[in-house]
């Protein structure tokens, strides 16, 4: 079986959000016996998943289409993991981390955050979305309760972005700055704002949020291994 061709077919099934075809490819590969299913997931289906993020960023893909494709990707991942008998090593590779998202207190804008939740989920993160108007104290409480890796807060208004600063301050005052990675986003936020308040990361949009989260998680893992 032509491995490259199979990877390409796998990639296309994610872009087309065609679950039936995607599952067929997995069983075809399993039957063949020469294809590494984890590689097929990472370099075939995974490429397709990256491509849908890119298309969404260009405006060529709508959010429902992105979500359909992400759902197919999730089922593809589960199917492959089952076939690998829940291989611990594979699960470790595929589980990127746990992220808590919230729009800050006083801010009802959750559309952008919802999109970020979708791209992060499709990129393999476990996302806990607390919704909007969430007080900083509650965000910290839930982050501890769920033992998350990243706390991501969104603020759309210049009048509410100060809540992001408040959150960082609470973490600092309670010696929890190293426990959680903090990311900020929303229309008035910038990299400079993130730096000013002591947040670890900032992303311009939902696609960049995945890239920044990946980088920060990698940094955290490297740090903990040192």
């Amino acid at each position: 079986m032509d491995k490259e061709r199979l990877y390409e077919k796998a990639r296309e099934t994610i872009i087309d959000a065609d679950e039936t075809k995607a599952i067929n490819i997995i069983f075809e590969a399993q039957k063949d016996g020469e294809i590494d299913l984890l590689d097929l997931l990472l370099y075939g289906f995974g490429d397709g998943n990256e491509e849908i993020g890119h298309l969404f960023d260009l405006g060529s893909l709508s959010l429902p289409e992105l979500i359909y494709a992400a759902e197919v990707m999730r089922n593809v991942t589960d199917t492959i993991l089952n076939l690998l008998h829940d291989d611990k090593e594979a699960r470790k590779i595929l589980h990127k981390g746990k992220i808590l998202l919230a729009t800050v207190e006083g801010d009802v804008h959750d559309i952008g955050k919802g999109i970020v939740a979708s791209t992060l989920k499709s990129a393999g993160y476990e996302v806990i979305d607390l919704g909007c108007e969430v007080p900083a104290e509650v965000i910290v409480e839930k982050a501890i309760e769920n033992d998350v890796d990243i706390i991501g807060t969104s603020a759309l208004l210049t009048s509410t972005m100060l809540e992001q600063k408040k959150l960082i301050k609470i973490l600092q005052e309670n010696d929890m700055s190293d426990k959680f990675i903090t990311m900020v986003g929303g229309a008035p936020c910038t990299k400079r704002w993130a730096k000013r308040i002591g947040a670890d990361g900032y992303s311009e949009d939902a696609v960049e949020a995945v890239r920044v989260a990946n980088e920060l998680i990698k940094l955290k893992k490297n740090k903990s291994e040192e």
Binding site: I111, K113, G114, K121
Partner: peptide, 9 residues
């Protein structure tokens, strides 16, 4: 914004 991430398209 709640329904979409839940897949309730």
């Amino acid at each position: 914004a709640v329904l979409l991430p839940e897949g309730r398209i």
